[in-house]
Design a binder for these strands. Structure first.
Length: 545
RNA sequence: GCGCUCGUAGCUCAGCCGGAUAGAGCGUCUGACUACGAAUCAGAAGGCCGCAGGUUCGAGUCCUGCCGAGCGCGCCA
């Protein structure tokens, strides 16, 4: 049990004994100022009305009543805070068990209902770009963090391999393909085609495998086959990129299977039967405005084809049928308006609306030499995720992506990122880890074997470091609950600072065996937390650098 | 116009369930390597926390309004 929880329990029982008051929420926090002790609580202030007494008086009574071996002192301060100091023995015991826990420190065994997280879900019409990268890094880290916080997680990638975009993409490749044989592939609207260089690569591979066969085929069949090939090509490429940025999925789900299984049709029929649809102008509309959407949406167009909403609703019905009762969709901020209509469809099917939860990730504003790089997949001037990683490396890319709240716009100046890579916060955190590894090499021992710890009073830098280390599980829980991945990088940078400060003032490898064992324990504990924390972000913790 | 997300140091951003003197990195300036890694540390400068009200013992944090930014508001996805 954390010190916060243990202190809260002490306070609760003290309030019960001294005042006959049953306290509900007892807020215990770490003060910013070390002179205010290791922990502080504002109960006397926050519950002034309940106690019907002067807060300072209440605080004094509570502080006097608290008595536990792990608490060294409890003092009243300011308008009525109670400041706690922990006994060194208790702190060292926690540090020892932290080291003992190893990779499980900060991690709870997953239990209960699984949550399904859907993210990236980029269409297979081109390589992943830097915007996808942010969603990939955020989604994967969130999944890891939620797992660490004790939630079962299933990661899924939904890809659209049918529909208009794919048809356009097939045509784009067909045009390139024809060029290779110096022939023509007539298209209606060449402006809407994908123009990226990669379309040539797809065409080259296509021609290698099939030669000129598509010129002799029925145009529709040819396009369908080319589309299949091009889609597969892109998915292979995307999977490679995902692997490179260390993002894994439990399942890749394709839109086509929903048509093949009749899922889309079944969903539409169900919606019709539910009475939440109507026909107008030859189209089938979903009465989504009944469920909070701005307006009603078309499900089936007047030409009989589906809008993208239809398969998406079917897809979510499928998630429900597969047994998921909680899902999180991670989407680009440009899809903000999409949630209400999808939720309307879900509710229309009789499923609970909170089955679907959405996190919007702001787009990445990519800068190069102070100028914004506009990117558009069709125009072809995309900066791909692979190019970004080529320039700054996988660790920097992953770390940088999640360093800021996913809700804020992120400006990423490529030129600057390369130039400043030496001063990058990733290296700051990694350096602390490598530095510790170096100490253990010199000490000729391992972090798992630091010897017996004989508790003693901690120096200020040691105490601050220790308290930071013991805060890790709370940070993980908090990040998971709020789905704010950036709390981890923020924490790790603070921890690294605490360690560097400790390191500068205190020599670890001293002659006094007791002192050495305690300091080595702090090093081992820090190394462990840095490694676990970076692991949650998909960033390496190097032994040397 | 309506909706969503934001507005904190020159720049990029933190800030726990409302707590004590609002923090870090980059940039600028000054110091510290013949002790375990100087990719580090210590210090300085730099703030009407967008503006105005409200809630209360206490507001960067909660509420309302305004100003500003981004995104969305298709029988595109």
């Amino acid at each position: 049990m954390s010190f916060e929880a243990r202190i809260a329990n002490e306070i609760r029982s003290a309030a019960r004994d001294a005042f006959g008051v049953e306290l509900e929420a007892v807020h215990v926090e770490r003060p910013n100022d070390p002179s205010h002790g290791d922990f502080a609580t504002n109960v006397a202030l926050a519950n002034a009305k309940v106690f019907k007494r002067n807060p300072r008086e209440v605080a004094a009574t509570l502080a006097g009543a608290v008595e536990a071996p792990f608490i060294k002192s409890a003092e009243v301060a300011g308008p009525g805070f109670i400041n706690f100091r922990l006994s060194p023995g208790a702190v060292w015991a926690e540090i020892a068990s932290l080291i003992e826990a190893g990779e499980n420190y900060g991690r709870e065994e997953p239990s209960g209902e699984p949550v399904q997280i859907e993210f990236v879900s980029a269409n297979p019409t081109g390589p992943m770009h830097v915007g996808h990268g942010r969603q990939a890094a955020y989604g994967d880290s969130l999944a890891r963090i939620m797992e660490a916080a004790g939630r079962k997680v299933s990661r899924e990638y939904y890809f659209n391999d049918g529909g208009n975009q794919i048809r356009l993409f097939a045509e784009s490749v067909a045009v390139r393909y024809a060029e290779m044989f110096e022939r023509e592939w007539p298209v209606e609207d060449s402006d809407s085609l994908y123009k990226g260089e990669y379309t040539k690569e797809v065409a080259r591979d296509l021609s290698k495998e099939y030669g000129e066969k598509f010129f002799d085929m029925d145009r529709g069949e040819a396009l369908s086959e080319i589309g299949d090939f091009a889609t597969r090509w892109c998915m292979d490429d995307i999977r490679r990129t995902l692997a490179r940025i260390r993002v894994r999925f439990d399942n890749f789900f394709n839109e086509k299977s929903l048509y093949d299984s009749g899922g889309v049709e079944k969903t539409i029929e169900k919606l019709k039967a539910s009475g939440h649809t109507y026909e107008e102008d030859g189209a089938v509309w979903l009465s989504s405005s009944e469920f909070g959407d701005d307006k009603d949406r078309v499900l089936v167009k007047s030409d009989g084809s589906y809008t993208y909403v239809a398969p998406d609703i079917a897809y979510h019905a499928d998630k429900w049928e597969r047994g998921f009762r909680a899902t999180v969709n991670i989407l680009g901020a440009d899809h903000a308006g999409y949630t209400p209509r999808l939720r309307a469809g879900i509710v229309g099917l009789g499923l609970p609306g909170d089955f679907l939860d959405v996190e919007l990730v702001r787009l990445v504003k990519l800068m190069r030499d102070g100028e914004e790089v506009k990117f558009s997949k069709r125009a072809g001037n995309v900066v791909t995720l692979d190019e970004l990683m080529d320039e700054v490396g996988e660790d920097v890319a992953r770390y940088f992506y999640v360093r800021f709240s996913h809700k804020t716009e992120m400006g990423f100046d490529l030129g600057l990122a390369i130039k400043q890579s030496d001063e990058n916060p990733v290296f700051y955190v990694q350096y602390a880890h490598a530095r510790i590894a170096s100490i253990f090499r010199r000490a000729e021992t391992s972090p798992e074997d630091v010897g017996e710890i004989h508790p003693a009073e901690l120096a200020p830098e040691e105490r601050v470091l220790a308290m930071e280390l013991l805060d890790f599980p709370r940070i993980v829980r908090n990040a998971a609950a709020k789905r704010e991945v950036h709390l981890l990088p923020t924490y790790l940078e603070t921890l690294a600072t605490r360690y560097h400060q400790f390191y500068t003032i205190h020599k670890v490898l001293v002659d006094d065996e007791d002192v050495k064992a305690r300091r080595l324990a702090l090093c081992a504990a820090t190394k462990n937390v840095l490694k676990n924390g970076l692991g949650l972000l998909g960033v390496h913790a190097p032994e040397r650098m």
